[in-house]
Amino acid sequence: MKNGKKKIRLALALVFVLVVAAVVGYFIFIRKNEGTPLGQVTQAEPIKFYSQLDGTVVAEAGQVPRVVGVMVDNHPDARPQQAGLSKASIVYEALAEGGITRYLAIFTASSSVEKVGPVRSARPYYLDWIREYGESPYMHCGGSPEALSLISRLGLFSLNEFVYSDYYWRDNKYYVPHNLFTNSSLWEKVLAKQGAQRPTKEWSGWLFEKTPSTSTSSVSAATIRYDSYYKVGWKYDGKQYVRTINGVGHLDAGAPITADTIIIQEVGTKVIDDVGRKELDTIGAGDLRVLKHGTMVRGIWKKESVTGRTKFFDQAGQEIPLAAGHIWVEVVPVKTPVEITS
């Protein structure tokens, strides 16, 4: 009799434990799925893939993006009709002659861009940057003797307007040479004809952050004095950096030019002829500043070979993760005055 009562007590205790466990499990489930409509089961976050060009989200993983580089005029007479810079994933700015800079605008070949230009001539150091992106079309109108010689000797994927005029047009509302333009429809035609013979080659991307990093170095603006008559400004508006030239907003087809990452890269620079053409030390190492999310990181850049990727490292030697989106690389001579505003 006693054994029977003991078994009953044990059975009741076991039932009690199971009931308590079920109730606790139910409330844990409810807390985890709080806010989920009745009858729906929460799903895992979808897997995201990121572009090795600019860190933005893309549809598929493992794609090596084909890019197109376009030389863009920055003479004062060209600025009112500038177009396409705000659509570029990456823009390199460096001095040409006469204290005036020129741009190399990098686009994904699949991007839709209605108008890019005015298109101008090649310089050797821009070739060092376009070659970081594998076998990529380089659109330009003529070039310095050294640049044209390098393009020919190296067999680069050059789309010189002197040879490929069908892929450009002149807007007669503006004066030559500040009136030559191209667009994505035209470079797509080139790739449809020549792309198979010049397939995309592997190239290395930069490191991009998946979430905004934090820094104690708060920076609201930077001003770069390329020349006594030419000053570039970037001001953080809480989301992006807004660009100015000589204190006036820099517009692209009427819209402000903005960026998510600004890289200020110091390079050795010297004048090599009477025209004022320059030689830039793009291979080696030097000082840099990286601006992102209203902060600044100091460090060094390194490029080990002509086709090697320029990489950016902090003072501890770690590669700096860039903010995804539009990136401007401001290539400046060593000791160029740069004013940083906290």
Rank of each mutant, 00 (worst) to 15 (best):
A323N: 13
N246M: 13
S204E: 15
T214Q: 12
A259H: 00
C141M: 05
R170E: 08
T336D: 10
L38W: 02
G143E: 01
A285T: 14
P124S: 14
L14R: 06
L280W: 13
Y226T: 03
R120S: 10
L148C: 06
E60H: 13
E188I: 00
R298K: 15
P177T: 13
V334P: 00
V334K: 15
K210N: 13
Y230C: 09
G299N: 03
L159T: 09
V119M: 05
P199I: 03
G117D: 02
F181I: 04
H326I: 14
I224F: 09
I272A: 09
S149W: 00
T244W: 01
R309Q: 13
V219E: 00
Y138W: 02
K278P: 11
T261H: 06
D274C: 00
K173L: 12
V176L: 10
G286A: 09
Y133F: 15
A253I: 04
K5E: 07
V119W: 01
E202M: 11
L150M: 09
Q265C: 09
Q40P: 00
E319G: 06
S149V: 04
Q52I: 15
S51C: 10
W169P: 05
I90F: 08
G134I: 04
I327Y: 03
V334E: 14
G84Q: 05
A192Q: 15
Q315L: 15
A105T: 03
K5T: 13
K311C: 12
Y168M: 06
K189L: 12
G142Y: 04
F313R: 03
D77W: 04
A147E: 07
A122N: 00
E188R: 15
E45F: 03
V297Q: 02
Y50D: 01
V338F: 10
A147C: 09
V67H: 10
G117P: 01
S149Q: 13
A61L: 08
G35C: 09
T223C: 04
K173M: 12
T307I: 14
A11E: 11
V290F: 04
H293E: 14
V41Y: 10
T211D: 07
L53N: 01
A13L: 14
I130E: 01
P256S: 07
E202A: 14
A323G: 03
A83R: 03
D287F: 11
P37I: 14
L18P: 00
V23S: 07
M71F: 03
K303E: 11
P321R: 11
F157R: 10
V67F: 08
N183K: 08
